[in-house]
Amino acid sequence: MIVAPSMLASDFSHLSDEIRRIDIAGADWVHLDAMDGHFVPNLTFGPPVISSMRPYTDKPFDVHLMIDEPIQYIPQFRKAGADIITFHLEAASDPDAVIQAISDGGAKPSVAIKPGTPVDAVLPYLDRLYMVLVMTVEPGFGGQKFMPNMLSKVRVIKQKRPDVLVEVDGGINDVTAKEAARAGVNVLVAGTSVFGAKDAAAAISSLKNSDRTL
Rank of each mutant, 00 (worst) to 15 (best):
K153F: 05
G142C: 08
G105R: 14
D120G: 06
F146A: 11
V154H: 08
T136E: 04
P124Y: 13
K145P: 15
I102M: 00
L129R: 02
K158A: 14
V122T: 01
S110M: 14
L126R: 12
P118R: 13
G142L: 10
V111H: 02
V154W: 03
P115I: 14
I157F: 05
N149K: 10
D127R: 10
D104S: 02
V137D: 07
A107F: 08
F141K: 13
D120I: 02
L133Y: 11
Y125A: 03
R161G: 08
K153C: 11
V156M: 07
A107R: 06
K153W: 06
P109W: 01
V119S: 06
V132Y: 08
I102H: 00
V156N: 10
T117E: 01
V156S: 09
P124D: 07
G142M: 07
K145C: 02
N149I: 11
N149Y: 04
R128P: 00
S110C: 14
Q100I: 03
V111Y: 03
M147N: 15
L126W: 10
D104Y: 00
S110W: 09
G105A: 14
S103R: 15
K160F: 06
P139D: 11
L133V: 12
Q159A: 15
V111D: 02
M150T: 15
M131T: 08
I102A: 00
V137A: 05
A107C: 09
G142A: 10
T136Q: 03
K108E: 09
V111W: 02
K145R: 13
P139S: 10
R161H: 13
L126A: 04
A121L: 01
A112W: 01
M135Y: 08
D120P: 07
E138L: 02
S110E: 14
F146N: 10
R128E: 08
V156T: 15
D104I: 00
P124F: 13
P148F: 03
L123N: 02
Y130C: 01
V154Y: 04
T117D: 01
G105W: 13
Y125N: 06
S152V: 09
I102G: 00
R155H: 11
F141Q: 02
K114A: 14
M150R: 13
G116R: 14
K160S: 12
P139L: 08
R128W: 00
K158G: 13
R161P: 09
D127K: 14
G116S: 13
R161D: 12
K145I: 01
A121F: 07
Y130G: 00
P148C: 11
S152R: 09
D127T: 05
T117F: 05
S152G: 11
A101M: 06
G142P: 09
Y125D: 08
T117C: 08
L151M: 15
L126Q: 11
Y130V: 00
R128N: 10
K158F: 04
P109S: 03
R128D: 10
L123Q: 04
A107M: 06
D120F: 08
P148K: 07
T117S: 03
V156P: 01
D127E: 13
G143I: 03
M135C: 10
V122C: 02
R161S: 13
V119G: 04
A112C: 04
R161F: 08
F146D: 08
R161L: 09
K145S: 15
P139Y: 09
G143A: 05
Y130P: 00
I157N: 12
L151S: 15
K153Y: 06
Q144A: 15
F146T: 11
N149R: 09
D120H: 12
